[in-house]
C-alpha cells in the first residue's frame, strides 16, 4: 500500500463519511417506519428529535463531501510518483480500473445526492404538514448503501495499489482500442455540437418552467406536478447531457485548451486550465439543481403545497439557470478565444 499524508487524511474523512451515512440511514429507516402525522403529538415530537439528528449529521456530511471531492483527486495525484509509468491521474486510475473510475464518479454523484436531500428538507420545513418527510427518510437507505459502497471501493483501491507499470492518458485516448468506439476518442467537433444543442434545449426548458412555475398557482396549471414520467425523462436528458459533455471535453475541448492536438485527458484539463474547474462545476451544479426541481415536483404531495413553496421553487430554478448559463458563457468565451 502507498502511504502518505493525503491517503491518511482521505481515509479519516472517508471513515467519518461512512459513520455519518450509516447513522443517517439507520435512524432514517427507524423514523420512516413510525412516522405518521396523526400520531399523538409527543410521539411525533420524539420522532422529530431523531430527524434533527439526521439533519445535523447530513449537513456536516454535505460539507465533508464537498471537501472530499478535491481531496480524492489530490490524493490520487500524490500517488503518481509511486506508480511507474503514471504521469497523471489517468495513469493512477489505470491501476485499478474500473473501480477507480467508479469511485471517482461517485465523488460527483454523492454531493449531488446530499444536496438533493438538504434542499428537499429545506422545502419540507416550510410546510407545517412536512409533506416530504417520508420521501426524504426513505431516500436515506439507498444513500447509506451508496456511501458504504463508495467507502469499500475507495479502501479497496487505496489499500491495494500494486507496484506495476501502468499506461497513461495518451495510450488511452490516442491509440485506437477495440473496447472504445473511435468516435469517442478521436478529435471531433460532433460532441461539442450535440452538447450545445442539448444545453440550449435544457436552458430553454429552465426558462419555460420558470415562467410556468410562477403561473402554476392559477387554475388548471402545473400539470407536471406529481408526474413521475416527466421526472424520468428529465433525469435521462440531463444524464445524457452530462455524458455528451464529458465526451465533448475529451474529444475536442481538452486538446484545444491544452494546446496539444493529441492530449485528450480531462484530468489534465481540469488541473492545468484555470477556468476549466469553474465552468465544469457551474454546468454540473446548474444541471443538478434543475434535476432536483423535477425530483421535488414529481412528488405525489407536491401539488397540495405548491403555493406555499412557490417562492423557493422559483429561486431553485433561477439558480439552476444562473449556474448553467454562467458555465456555458465561460466555456463559450474560452472556446472562442482558443479557436
Amino acid at each position: 500500500m502507498i502511504l502518505n499524508n493525503y491517503i491518511i487524511t482521505y481515509l479519516v474523512c472517508s471513515s467519518l463519511s461512512l459513520v455519518i451515512g450509516l447513522l443517517a440511514a439507520v435512524n432514517g429507516f427507524l423514523v420512516w417506519k413510525k412516522w405518521d402525522i396523526t400520531n399523538p403529538a409527543d410521539e411525533q415530537y420524539r420522532l422529530e428529535k431523531k430527524v434533527y439528528l439526521i439533519i445535523t449529521i447530513l449537513s456536516l456530511g454535505f460539507f465533508l463531501r464537498i471537501l472530499m471531492t478535491p481531496l480524492w483527486f489530490w490524493t490520487l495525484h500524490s500517488m503518481i510518483i509511486s506508480i511507474p509509468g503514471a504521469m497523471c491521474l489517468v495513469g493512477v486510475h489505470n491501476i485499478a480500473a474500473p473501480i477507480s473510475y467508479i469511485a471517482s464518479g461517485l465523488k460527483l454523484i454523492l454531493p449531488a445526492l446530499y444536496g438533493y436531500w438538504l434542499i428537499l428538507n429545506l422545502l419540507d420545513r416550510y410546510v407545517p404538514t412536512q409533506p416530504f418527510m417520508k420521501q426524504k427518510l426513505m431516500f436515506l437507505t439507498p444513500l447509506g448503501i451508496l456511501i458504504l459502497a463508495e467507502t469499500i471501493l475507495d479502501a479497496s483501491f487505496l489499500f491495494s495499489v500494486p507496484p506495476r507499470q501502468v499506461s497513461c492518458c495518451t495510450s488511452l485516448f490516442d491509440v485506437p482500442r477495440e473496447d472504445i468506439l473511435q468516435i469517442a476518442t478521436e478529435s471531433t467537433w460532433i460532441w461539442v455540437v450535440i452538447f450545445y444543442i442539448l444545453a440550449f434545449f435544457i436552458s430553454g426548458e429552465i426558462v419555460y418552467f420558470l415562467i410556468a412555475q410562477k403561473r402554476s398557482a392559477l387554475p388548471n396549471r402545473g400539470r407536471w406536478f406529481g408526474k413521475k414520467s416527466l421526472m424520468f425523462f428529465e433525469t435521462l436528458a440531463i444524464l445524457l447531457l452530462l455524458v455528451v459533455f464529458i465526451l465533448a471535453l475529451q474529444t475536442r475541448i481538452s486538446p484545444l485548451f491544452l494546446g496539444l492536438p493529441f492530449h485528450h485527458c480531462i484530468f489534465c484539463l481540469l488541473q492545468e486550465v484555470w477556468d476549466a474547474p469553474l465552468f465544469f462545476f457551474m454546468i454540473f451544479v446548474g444541471l443538478t439543481l434543475f434535476l432536483i426541481y423535477f425530483w421535488v415536483v414529481s412528488s405525489a404531495n407536491y401539488r397540495d403545497v405548491n403555493e406555499l413553496l412557490m417562492e423557493e421553487m422559483v429561486r431553485l430554478l433561477k439558480w439552476s439557470g444562473y449556474m448553467l448559463a454562467g458555465g456555458l458563457i465561460i466555456l463559450s468565451i474560452h472556446l472562442f478565444l482558443a479557436l
Binding site: 499524508n5 493525503y6 487524511t9 474523512c13 467519518l16 455519518i20 434533527y52 439528528l53 445535523t56
Partner: peptide, 24 residues
C-alpha cells in the same frame, strides 16, 4: 489544507451528537 481537515472535521464529527443532544 490537509492539516485543517484533520484538525477540524473529526472534531466537528465528534461534536455533532452532543450538539444534537443540547438542541433537543
Amino acid at each position: 489544507v490537509l492539516l485543517f481537515i484533520l484538525g477540524v472535521l473529526p472534531l466537528m464529527g465528534v461534536s455533532a451528537i452532543p450538539a444534537w443532544l443540547a438542541g433537543v
